[in-house]
Amino acid sequence: MAIQILSISCLSLTIVFPQSLITVVQQIGGPSLSDFASGVNPYLFYLYTFVVYLLPFICLGNQSELWKKIWKWDRKRRRNIGPMTVNPVHVQSIPVKPLRSL
């Protein structure tokens, strides 16, 4: 549970921290720094929505039971590739339709 909380908080902090830092610099700097990173601020504002979209992936990534099932399913799907003998008596041919001319 602690790993889930830490990963969610790290995700939120990496997205929210830049805009918070810019706001603090603008407030502390006074009028001389009021335009500090003002061009980037609108883009950072829309990054907040990515937290909502990325949370399911963070939560699923921390489910160890789920990962065990995925790896088990993946191993079942794999097929061994090797030489194969073909008996020509039992080979069926596929009928091919002739192409229409234009």
Rank of each mutant, 00 (worst) to 15 (best):
P18D: 02
Y43V: 07
G61F: 01
V51M: 07
S9A: 14
L11I: 12
T23N: 12
K97C: 03
Q92W: 07
P88F: 00
C10A: 15
T85Y: 09
F36L: 04
E65Q: 14
G61Q: 05
S12C: 14
P95T: 05
D74A: 15
V25L: 14
V96I: 15
A37V: 06
A37I: 02
S34A: 08
S9R: 14
F50I: 01
S64V: 12
I94D: 04
S38I: 02
Q27D: 13
R75E: 10
T14L: 15
Y53V: 02
K76S: 11
T85V: 10
V96R: 06
G39K: 03
V25T: 12
I58R: 00
Y43T: 04
C59H: 13
L47K: 11
P31I: 13
L55D: 07
P95N: 04
M84I: 15
P88T: 02
G29T: 13
Y43K: 05
L54W: 09
N41W: 07
L44C: 00
E65P: 05
I58Q: 00
T23S: 15
D74Q: 14
S12V: 15
P56E: 07
A37L: 07
Y43E: 00
K76G: 10
K97S: 10
K97Y: 08
S64F: 11
Y48P: 05
Q63P: 09
W71L: 12
Q92E: 06
S12F: 14
I94P: 08
I58D: 01
I22R: 04
F45I: 04
K72Y: 01
P31M: 14
V96S: 09
L54V: 11
C59T: 13
Y46S: 13
S34P: 03
V86G: 01
H90T: 02
S20I: 12
F57C: 08
T14S: 15
V51F: 00
L13W: 13
W73S: 05
L47E: 14
T49I: 06
T14F: 14
W71G: 03
K97T: 08
M84E: 11
S64R: 12
V24W: 06
L21Y: 12
F57K: 01
Y46I: 13
T49D: 02
G29H: 12
P42Q: 04
P31V: 13
S34D: 03
L11Y: 06
P31W: 13
K72S: 09
Q92A: 09
Y53C: 09
C10E: 15
Y53G: 08
P83F: 08
F45G: 08
V16Q: 05
K69E: 03
V86P: 00
G61H: 06
G39M: 02
F50A: 02
S34M: 09
F50V: 05
K72A: 05
L21Q: 09
S12H: 13
V86M: 08
V52A: 00
P31Y: 12
S32K: 06
L47V: 12
L60R: 03
S9G: 10
N87L: 00
